[in-house]
Design a protein around this nucleic acid. Structure first.
Lengths: 315, 315
DNA sequence: GGCGCGCCACAACTGTTCGTTGTGTCACTA
DNA sequence: TAGTGACACAACGAACAGTTGTGGCGCGCC
């Protein structure tokens, strides 16, 4: 469908005749006639009743009208989403299944009227992600920072600790811990943890390395990642494989997989995540988001938890 | 913006490379390259990072992605709205400001997931509107029926009395009744009622004629109708003009107009409206709408009201 | 390190499309 | 019956989108 034809359709419907629509659009009456004719041929119905006093909408034309408006509004939003200066708040979540994405969804539900674009930059290094924020390509990113002060010094960026996602154990029904109400990290030492596809050398790998060393866990990061669906399937069928997932993460599986999320306590490992933004970014919705994140974080404090050594100071 | 280009953008983003997108679309790789290039020129940003292993979305491309999906969905809905067989429930309300439109809006709010197209056929005679329903051009219409049994016999149409809209008096602040808590029809005999632009000979005109004759009212239907905005302005400035509006109608005016809606009691004139549909219409949402209307009507019964002679038998 | 491979961009060509000008048809009006 | 207003049809030219052919570039493989 040609959006120029849709625009012409709306002009004719508001002006009431082809000639005036043509004048407004800066084309000839014959061109309008052709555009409307082509649109009518495409949708398969007559949209205007042509009469000696102009053109009026048919029943089909009236039904089409609100959808035509919506089409052009969708076009406008699409253009705005990539136009510097008028683009919506754009946030990088690195992974659409983990806590930051869930939290952004909650923010969006509270503020339906705001435009929000969530992008995932899973393959970017921390440095590249920070550069994207500094350049204005994205307004905010959720990342783990091993040393916020040093990592952000001289970059013009600000950060705030806003998520401490409590880890849970994800196991299938055949796993020995399948029916446990909760487990402690030390009990996990007897069971291998499988986290395929973790990138080496970044803060996520550092977190699992320190977690494993502290409690004597076997955390296997080997093997390529074929995606969450494959991971869920493997865990569902296995009597030994277990996976660590964040409490705020959103993984879906068929009901007959019968996977279970087992809380980990005494202590609960938490992965600290900071939100990073450009100091002085005037995006109007950014302040709203930061306030939302701060309020959410304040409401979740407490509990006996374990943090990596680099996540023990606040923001 | 070219929707074919948007479609191509989505194919490339899902396939990961130009050549496979081209194969799926049945065009050459070069054509895909041109389309993407043209789209990028139009939106002013680079959407794909081209590499030797294919094309991946840039940050801007990721932000654009959900909007591209929405554009194509909007296109699909627009096409569906006029495609016989898969079109949404289509209802004629004759006037977008009166009770049926308000009621449909309430229905839509309860059933956001349903597709609903509201069309207004103000200039159609009752016969033409019924013909539109019988032909399937619209699924239902709200009309006044002076003799449902006779008017619908042999047409294959069904009807139900679903609205009895209580009339109120609309006056400006200078009108003698501006501060009345309520008025009776007989008191209105001293004040002219102005209803410009009423079509002659239809059921609405018949209603006002009988109402006027019963209570000795002066109902002036003269003068062309310049639209609701003009009417509101005239009433706001006049010390004598008054207008009858339905309780369920939705008229808007600037706050400084200071118009008032005065309830009419002892008795309250009500205009009976039937919904008419084609017997055996299988549109799945039609039954939902009829049930909604019936429930709403049942919840509004009661009160001392006046009906025209032709509206005193039920459905 | 040279070579081949996969992937995308550029160039030249062609058929189609879109817009323009000019003319025709039709209904209403005086 | 002639005039007017409004839309449709016809013919023409420019622009565009698609095709084939070719080139550049990064990566992996011998």
């Amino acid at each position: 469908m040609d959006l120029d034809a849709v625009r012409t359709f709306l002009k004719v419907s508001s002006e009431g005749q082809f000639q005036r629509a043509a004048d407004e659009l800066g084309i000839t009456q014959q061109a309008v006639s052709k555009r409307i004719g082509a649109l009518e041929r495409e949708v398969g119905v007559v949209l205007f009743a042509r009469g000696p006093r102009g053109a009026t909408l048919t029943v089909d034309g009236q039904a089409f009208l609100p959808h035509a408006h919506e089409l052009l509004q969708a076009e406008d939003r699409a253009l705005a989403s990539v136009t510097p200066g008028r683009r919506a708040l754009r946030v990088d979540v690195r992974n659409r299944r983990t806590a930051p994405a869930t939290l952004l969804h909650a923010f969006y539900r509270q503020h339906r009227e705001r435009d929000l674009d969530v992008v995932a930059l899973p393959d970017l290094t921390l440095e590249a992600a920070l550069a994207a924020v500094a350049s204005g390509a994205v307004d905010a990113t959720f990342r783990g920072l091993t040393d916020p002060k040093r990592q952000l010094s001289g970059t013009g960026l600000s950060s705030a600790l806003v998520i401490e996602d409590r880890h849970e154990l994800l196991v299938g029904p055949k796993h020995p811990l399948a029916d446990a109400a909760s487990v402690t990290p030390r009990r996990l030492a007897d069971h291998p943890i499988w986290m395929p596809g973790l990138p080496r050398g970044d803060e996520v790998a550092a977190y699992y390395a320190e977690l494993g060393a502290t409690f004597g866990l076997t955390i296997d990061v080997l093997g390529p990642a074929f995606g969450a669906e494959v991971l869920m399937t493997e865990i569902a069928e296995s009597a030994t494989l277990a996976n660590l997932v964040g409490e705020g993460s959103r993984y879906l599986w068929p009901a007959h997989y019968d996977l279970r999320r087992i809380p980990i306590v005494d202590p609960t490992p938490v992965f600290p995540l900071w939100v990073v933004w450009r100091t002085g970014n005037r995006q109007p919705d950014l302040a709203e988001l930061l306030a939302f994140l701060e309020a959410d974080f304040a409401g979740r404090k407490g509990g006996d938890s374990w943090r990596p050594s680099w996540g023990r100071d606040g923001h």
